[in-house]
C-alpha cells in the first residue's frame, strides 16, 4: 500500500514485496497454458479426424468450429465462457435430467477457453501432419508384416512428429500469451497479479516491466525446449 517503497522492495520477497505473488502468477500462467494445450490437443485431434471423415455433417461441424474460433477474438471467447459456463453446464445437465453441477473454477473456465481456441489451430496442424505420411509407405509397412502398433511407432509417428512439432511450438507460444486474457476472470495469473500490484502500489511501470521479463523467460525457455525436442525428432525422422 505504501508508495515510498524502493523498486527492489516492491519486487522483493519480503512482506510488502510482490516477488512471490509474481512468481506464483507465472506458475499459474504456465499451468493455464499447459491445460489449454492439452485440451486443445485432444479436441484438435478429434476435429482433424472429423474433417478427414467421410460423413458430411462431421466435416461441416469441424469446419464451422474452425471458422468461428479463428474469426472471433480470443478475449470474447474467454468472456463468453467465463460468464456463460455455469449456465451451459446447468443446461447440459438438465438435458440428462441431472441436478445442475457446481460452477467450474476460474482456472478451468480460463484454460478451457484458451484450449477451445487452441484446438482450432491445432486441428489444422494435425490435418497437415496426417498428410505427411504417403499411403504407399503404410501399405509397404503392412506388406513387410508390421502390426498397427509397430506401424504407428516406426513409420507414422516419427514423420508426423517431424511435421507437427514446429507449428505446435508456435501454438504453445500463443497459448502462453493468450493465457493473459484469463486475467479478466480474476484468476491470479501473471497478468492479473501485475495489474493488481500496479494499481494498489501505483507503480505501473515497475510491475508491467517485471511481468514482461517473466513472460520473456517463459516464452524463451519453452522455445528452447521445443528446439531441443525438434532436434531429437529430426534425428528419428532421419531414420537412425
Amino acid at each position: 500500500m505504501d508508495a515510498e517503497l524502493s523498486v527492489p522492495a516492491l519486487l522483493g520477497l519480503g512482506a510488502d514485496g510482490w516477488g512471490w505473488a509474481l512468481m506464483a502468477g507465472a506458475g499459474l500462467t504456465l499451468a493455464v497454458a499447459l491445460a489449454a494445450m492439452a485440451i486443445g490437443s485432444m479436441l484438435g485431434a478429434a476435429l482433424a479426424a472429423a474433417e478427414a471423415s467421410r460423413r458430411v455433417w462431421l466435416v461441416r461441424i469441424a469446419a464451422t468450429y474452425g471458422l468461428v474460433m479463428r474469426g472471433v477474438p480470443e478475449l470474447l471467447v474467454v468472456l463468453l465462457l467465463y460468464f456463460g459456463a455455469p449456465g451451459m453446464l446447468a443446461g447440459v445437465a438438465g438435458l440428462f435430467g441431472l441436478p445442475a453441477p457446481g460452477s467450474p473454477p476460474a482456472f478451468l473456465t480460463g484454460s478451457l477457453a484458451i484450449g477451445l481456441v487452441s484446438a482450432a489451430y491445432q486441428a489444422e496442424v494435425f490435418r497437415g501432419g496426417m498428410l505427411a505420411v504417403p499411403r504407399g509407405q503404410i501399405e509397404a509397412a503392412m506388406a513387410a508384416g508390421m502390426g498397427p502398433v509397430a506401424r504407428l511407432r516406426r513409420v507414422i509417428l516419427p514423420q508426423v512428429l517431424h511435421h507437427v512439432l514446429p507449428p505446435l511450438g508456435n501454438i504453445w507460444q500463443f497459448n502462453l500469451k493468450d493465457s493473459a486474457l484469463v486475467s479478466i476472470t480474476g484468476l491470479a495469473e501473471l497478468m492479473r497479479v501485475s495489474l493488481v500490484a500496479a494499481g494498489s502500489t501505483r507503480r505501473p511501470f515497475v510491475f508491467f516491466a517485471a511481468a514482461m521479463v517473466l513472460y520473456l523467460i517463459l516464452t524463451s525457455a519453452s522455445s528452447a525446449l521445443f528446439r531441443m525436442i525438434e532436434r531429437r525428432g529430426s534425428r528419428w525422422a532421419g531414420g537412425r
Binding site: 463468453l80 456463460g84 449456465g87 451451459m88 446447468a90 443446461g91 447440459v92 441436478p99 445442475a100
Partner: peptide
Amino acid sequence: LLAACHPRAP
C-alpha cells in the same frame, strides 16, 4: 448457447 443459460438455485 443462449437457450442453455438460465439461473438455478442449488
